[in-house]
Design a protein around this nucleic acid. Sequence first.
DNA 1: CGGAATATCTTCGATATCGAAGGAAGTGAG
DNA 2: CTCACTTCCTTCGATATCGAAGATATTCCG
Lengths: 379, 379
Amino acid sequence: MNQRLPVRGPQGDLLRLVATGKAESRAELARLSGLAASSISLRVEELIDAGLLAEEGSGTSRGGRRPRRLRLSPAAGVLAVADLGAHHVRLGLLDLSGFPLVIEERPCEIADGPRATLDRVADAFDALLAEHVPAGVPLRGVGTGVPGPVDPATLRVVTPSRMPGWNDFPVADHLATRYDLPVLVENDANLMAVGEARHWPGSENLMVVKAGTGIGCGVVVNGRLHRGRGAAGDISHVRVRSDSSILCACGHPDCLEAYASGAALADALAEAGIEVTRPADIVTLVNDAVPEATSLVRNAGRRIGEVLTVLVNFFNPDVVAVGGSLSAAEPLITSIRAAVWERCLPLATRDLEIAPARAGRDAALLGAGTLLLEAVTRP
Amino acid sequence: MNQRLPVRGPQGDLLRLVATGKAESRAELARLSGLAASSISLRVEELIDAGLLAEEGSGTSRGGRRPRRLRLSPAAGVLAVADLGAHHVRLGLLDLSGFPLVIEERPCEIADGPRATLDRVADAFDALLAEHVPAGVPLRGVGTGVPGPVDPATLRVVTPSRMPGWNDFPVADHLATRYDLPVLVENDANLMAVGEARHWPGSENLMVVKAGTGIGCGVVVNGRLHRGRGAAGDISHVRVRSDSSILCACGHPDCLEAYASGAALADALAEAGIEVTRPADIVTLVNDAVPEATSLVRNAGRRIGEVLTVLVNFFNPDVVAVGGSLSAAEPLITSIRAAVWERCLPLATRDLEIAPARAGRDAALLGAGTLLLEAVTRP
DNA sequence: CGGAATATCTTCGATATCGAAGGAAGTGAG
DNA sequence: CTCACTTCCTTCGATATCGAAGATATTCCG
């Protein structure tokens, strides 16, 4: 349909404020955007006429007349987002405010290479669009998370360790040939961090740790994802203090990943004669109070916590959120907390919150939606 | 004089672009500010009429008509800035573009407490103003660096380790009673980082390590100082890997500061029978090729480098600048580099520059000027 | 040397934004 | 219930910004 609706530029700013839930009325838009109330009224009317915004009842009074509540129109458009894992992909459709319309998980081997994988994802998008989106509602953006580093300049995957055939592949360009739309490609932990950040409204600086088969981390500074030169957020190859010495796949000894990742815990459990296949199995063992598993998880938490002490002192965030499939094991976060509280500067931990992630399984998809909304509504 | 000149708001944005050297002509102002060229012309004319900007010759052509170069008028105003150390204070006057008009160093015991110290600084400001600034040129801002953490919300010093009597003292409020102007109070390493950042034009993300009697660090993210909750940038109390065990003044064992700070090196030299009083003495020993000193400095560099590996992987900066009085010792930076190159992810070090600080002794004062310029020219 | 191309800056009418004033809708105190 | 007060939103004239067109100055290149 009409791609030329006023979704970009100054109008887009208003749209985004409503979509992200920061503003729900003309008055709030005026406060947050800095524009005059009269200008807001005019522009909002245009957006309503264009079918992008809709009025819906009235909000709660703040001591005067009740505001007329604004909402994004369902017809404003949808976003298609995916999160690629090693052996499966999670994908779905969101409306522009990031609300999931449909989300599903499919098996999908990333080792099949970029073309096959991305085409499979795009086919799935098309099927979902046909089934769940009425004609006339436009697709406005496409995004995917990948389990490896992404060069923010070129949107290519660079030197991934577990994505054979993907090195230097122009993921965004490939998707752009199929969709003439804003395309987003981002590391999965980064997406998760962005998705998580929306659940911590007052906090501008967050670290989000993803404890699963590997250990990932995303950083949000001043409310925005910090990419650095594309590698920011890596904590898995930090050297930990240790008596023994384990060689990591990266070639260096004593990486955090070699001690505290789900994969490392699985190896250690195997040595104790307990076979597990996924990190979730470890969580089950812990919940069943299997002592070997509990002890290992506690140890992993302490090691992760020790690494975090350095970063908390340095970065001084408001929140450290711990997600990923391993985070469901209670002792993990408890021992992370203990290590950080013990060793960090009091000033750095004064108002620090170390908490389980709030965004749930779809955090990365929601994060992709948030970043895509930016891309769609900016000039 | 007239404080009501158009230094704030939209006009201030233009002023700041010229003051920071980002724009030198109307055309550059238009490109950087996003405003129409015609609007720029009008506003620049106002600023010239108000005596804030001045035209000065013409710049170099970019293939067409030469731009008419814009400069900040010397009459636009001055800033008074200071950097408090333990036993001395460096202070001076800058013009609005951060150019130093006069800078001097005076003995000053910070242990005398905040009132005495700040009054002494203010008296010095007044003397410099009377001597070096013509009547009619207004003082537009006052700022000081302090060797301890500052709460960015209240501009008070909080839990400083080497500033007896300063805890929770409202430094900014105290200065504001004497100057009815924007007042800046900031940690000295943070100011140094801001000053340094101006010397790395293309780089948006920097870590600036200050290696002196203590070890400080300032972080610049996206071109702006990162404060976190006020404690950001601390690296001195990170636990280092070590066979022995040294107890740090903070109460924890094996802090970086206890191994690699100038104070720690002085202690180690004393044990070897070599007495030094200041970090600069250590540099002299190294330059004279005293083996004990060289070996100690090399060791300190390696330890600092090991801590930096964690932070470089995590933060992925463009530049790590090493300043402070110890940084004049060649082996320090060499061994920092070696440790980082060896252990960091190739992706993180790909375009990383580890280099001596460029801003020199007055980095902190220049940083104070930069931040004050912000405060003066913002709405 | 001279025209084509490029870049800077200004002029001027069209347009978008502002801000003061006022109407609309609600809260709370007496 | 009434009146004072607050907040939300719109109306409308004043004003600031834009953008197309043109004037000016300089480089590039045949």
